[in-house]
Nucleic acid binder design. Structure first.
Lengths: 219, 219, 219, 219
DNA sequence: GATGAATGAGGCTTCATTCAT
DNA sequence: GATGAATGAAGCCTCATTCAT
């Protein structure tokens, strides 16, 4: 079950068209954030969603709320991907480290890198919705890493946060770009990074393994 | 000799105070871009430089020109670092791959990641100043990579652009952050990425090696 | 029917209050342009129209668009005056040259002279709306002059453009003036000019008769 | 003797280069005002005069002073023209009305129309220099008109101000234009206006004859 | 509930004027 | 005396947000 669903279930009920509008706005916002950066005018998002601008405000009190919902939405989907990766790893004959690699590339395709620019000033990183999805994601990723470690394919000195931060950064879009340019290379660099993650360790890492909690504190 | 020097020498001469102001503005702009992103108000930059706002416009016709000069300034310093790394590698007993690692971490400390957000729409990536510094950087980095490859420590399937893109992305600051948060982990992730760069290759890379020319086309 | 009406009908529909604001802004702009010249701050126009400054930009993308609409609006009214003059001249017992004189003085009262300063750099004189109203005006003025010529009261060597240019110039307001000063004499000078237009010709004119097309090319 | 000379003689003495700069600035200012209107940036005038911007301020305390000096300079030259016209009319066989016509066209070529936009808000029309040149001009023009009246060629109901106002207005340049466009027709319209000035009167004029004093009050 | 319109605060840029060399 | 540079006060325009239909 996705976190987004639980969010929606909070309000008593919603008219079908209102619900449809809400989804369209989030989808449009994600696309616009990906393509034009975090400060795209809300009117543009409204136009892309084929909705009046005031409708955006009816659903999301201000820009920060909208950004948070987009983040939650993407993290939900990424968490789903991670869950599927764990399940596949647990299947008879599953290869945890191959599943980890697959997950990383799939998360990149979900534009997880586009979330970075949203974690800007004024973004409440301690909002319950965020905490919830973060915990879910951390738990399942921990499981995935643990599988790979147990299989002896993953170095021991890295944590969930290391993976997520680097994954996010390496796939971060350039502002004002439709991502077409960078996409050509993103998967190369992810592959290189993944190679670095594999054991035996190629070097001693400075610092300590990051958790998602550290990721929270970054901004 | 740095590219910036040649840029300044173009105009016949500059009064001492004007030159001082120019440098202060570029320094302030770099700091503000690093800390608050590409769209900090120019008035804030002026205040940080302890200069009237119009003075910024006297030196830099508009925001794009200022951004370009900051980019050139940083790339100049990074190129200098790379030159030193090559020189050290060529010293008797020099270790090319160790010098490459050192260079990567040093470039991170020069805030090269802060340049990414500047490569935004309206940024003229074909400006002569940029082409010049890019060529210089590419040449010296090529030399550095070649040394490491010859020493048998670097995979053969990566190019200068792969290194620079990943380095830039992994060190990119979060908007609205004084970089303190991410800095704790940046060097870990660089280390992991560097491990992935080392031979023998851990996996087959998709796509082809990137050049700095590709980096130009990204935006 | 006026050209302005056709312009408005282009957009599907407009809310009543928006339409009211639009008219108020044009009216305020005309007054401000007349009284304070072409470069009055748009904020002043907004204040005069009792409207927020951004509302001006909602209706008119930039200063040039607003100026054009004001020009069209005034030319529309002047064209209406000319049509009435032709109709009166065609009435039984109508005196074409007297109607011409009346038209000239009436056009002056419509502040047609205030349009001159608006035909400044950046003003698109080939905009469809302008072409349309110019053609309408030229046609009806041609008819009026032809009536007067046929009645033997108008010299043969002058064209529509001669009349409109001189009329505009002679009634042009001084910047920073509420027109009160010049108004005392404008009608005297128009009368003198009209006397010069009457036949028999008092002198040989240099150049050739101007058309409104020439007037367009002036700027 | 010109008024400008008397103005300069007020200050004790001037270095030769300073005097040359002063003249260059006035000449440049006149050209720029004619071509680009009254609000051309002073820096542009300085550049055209090949002089530093601060030098403009050394010679002319502020924009208004510079504008006044330009006005005085042009009126001086126009007055000289009028004096020559009177002299020619007084010559044996001189034709006062032909000289009047010649004077009007010559004054137009001196760009007298460009003065209108300078008579803007903040312009001190009662400055001694202006009063002086105005009196001189009025006296000599009065003489010229009187000659023409006596010769029976000029209507009796017009004054000096009527002539100067209409002359100025009809030759007024459009802002943002190099005057090339309007120049083609200016002399036609002056000719028409002059025809209207000739006797016998073609109509009864409203109002009363204008003096240059009225012209002063216009702005 | 949805919408188009209105608003005011704020950023960019220009320019008259003053200062320092 | 002449100059290039510095300055701050507006003006234009955008955009997040609120209001009226």
């Amino acid at each position: 079950m996705t976190t987004a669903a639980s969010v929606q279930s909070r309000a008593p009920r919603m008219r079908a068209d209102a619900l449809r509008n809400r989804e369209r706005i989030i989808a449009a916002a994600r696309e616009m954030f990906v393509e034009h950066g975090a400060q795209v005018p809300l009117d543009e998002i409204a136009r892309r969603a084929a909705v009046g601008n005031a409708t955006v405000y009816r659903h999301f009190a201000d820009r920060d709320v909208l950004m948070r919902q987009v983040v939650v939405s993407v993290l939900d989907r990424v968490t789903d991907l991670a869950e599927r990766a764990v399940a596949a790893a647990d299947t008879a004959g599953g290869d945890p480290s191959a599943e980890l690699r697959r997950f990383v590339h799939a998360a990149a395709d979900e534009r997880i890198g586009a979330l970075c620019p949203l974690l800007t000033a004024g973004f409440d990183k301690d909002h319950p919705d965020l905490i919830a999805v973060r915990l879910r994601l951390e738990a399942v990723l921990d499981a995935l890493l643990e599988r790979a470690r147990t299989a002896g394919r993953l170095r021991a000195d890295i944590g969930v946060g290391d993976l997520m931060i680097a994954l996010s950064q390496l796939t971060r879009p350039l502002p004002g770009t439709a991502c077409s340019g960078i996409d050509r290379y993103v998967h190369r660099h992810l592959q290189l990074f993944l190679d670095g993650l594999m054991s035996p360790a190629g070097s001693v890492l400075p610092g300590t393994a990051a958790t998602l909690e550290d990721l929270r504190q970054r901004a």
